[in-house]
Amino acid sequence: MHSHTPASRTGRPRSAAADTAILAATREALVELGWSKLTLGDVAMRAGVAKTTLYRRWAGKNELVVDAVAELFDELELPDRGSLAADIEGVVLQFAAILARPEAKSGLMAVVAEATRDDALRERIRRSIVERQMGLVLQGRARAQKRGELPPEPDPQEAARTVDLIFDVVAGAVVHRTLVSGKAADEEWVRSFTRVLIGGLASPA
């Protein structure tokens, strides 16, 4: 689990309590209003802070929503269930449960759509959500290699490409299943997905 602090700006010292209240208020507003009707003024009122406090911390609504959603994904942890398959199933079920939350659904879909025409926002999503969860892939792969379930990769560049690929496959499949297709990533689906994933990972290149 990671703590998340929005990008700092110059000026008066930041208040961690205010940041926490603002991000929680943003998620509350996403549940009640959705992304399209969410305003910084409403978030400020819910958080009990001045609207200028938000503008000192975030450039606009999209950046605020990215940080609020990123905190949800920081809840992800890789359980040690004794095998690669069980570990993957555990983290994928957590991931699917987060995506099923209304604040994650409305927030993530909206900012990803906005990022198609905003390179800075795309970079913020990559830095705040994607890169921070890559650590789970690294941890899981290292654990499986130690158990002898996956072969070692002595080439650092090839290892980095593998990590990217694993993350893309897992995240892409679960996001498509839950947010695009609107279907449940339940235990049966997760077991089937894990079986297919490991079949590809464990086979020689």
Score class of each variant (00 low, 15 high):
L108V: 09
G34H: 08
S106F: 12
M134L: 15
P154D: 06
E114W: 09
T10D: 12
R126C: 05
W58G: 00
Q145N: 00
A160K: 10
S15D: 08
E149C: 09
V169L: 15
G200C: 10
V137Q: 09
L30M: 04
A44S: 12
E32T: 03
S83A: 14
L54A: 02
N62W: 01
A21S: 10
I129E: 04
G182Y: 09
G41M: 02
H2N: 12
T116W: 03
Q157F: 13
I166L: 11
V111Y: 00
V170K: 07
G182A: 08
V43R: 11
A16S: 08
D118R: 07
V112M: 13
R191Y: 02
A110N: 09
S83F: 12
S15K: 02
A184I: 07
M109T: 15
S128G: 04
E32D: 13
E158H: 06
E153M: 03
E188T: 02
E187C: 06
S192A: 15
L201H: 08
A47V: 04
L150P: 00
Q139F: 05
E123H: 15
R126H: 07
A173G: 06
I88H: 13
V175G: 03
L76V: 13
I22Q: 00
D118C: 07
G82D: 00
S15H: 00
A47W: 11
L99M: 09
R124F: 01
G107N: 11
F193T: 11
R46S: 14
T194Q: 10
I125C: 09
E75R: 13
E75C: 10
R57D: 07
L165Y: 10
V66M: 01
T178P: 07
R191T: 08
R117H: 14
P79E: 05
A21P: 04
G199T: 00
P154W: 00
A97L: 12
V196L: 15
S3C: 07
R126Y: 07
G34Q: 05
R101P: 04
A142V: 10
R27D: 06
L99C: 08
A29D: 09
E158I: 12
Q157M: 15
A144R: 07
G172M: 05
M1K: 06
T10I: 13
A115E: 08
A96C: 02
V175C: 04
A59N: 04
M45R: 15
D80G: 11
E77T: 15
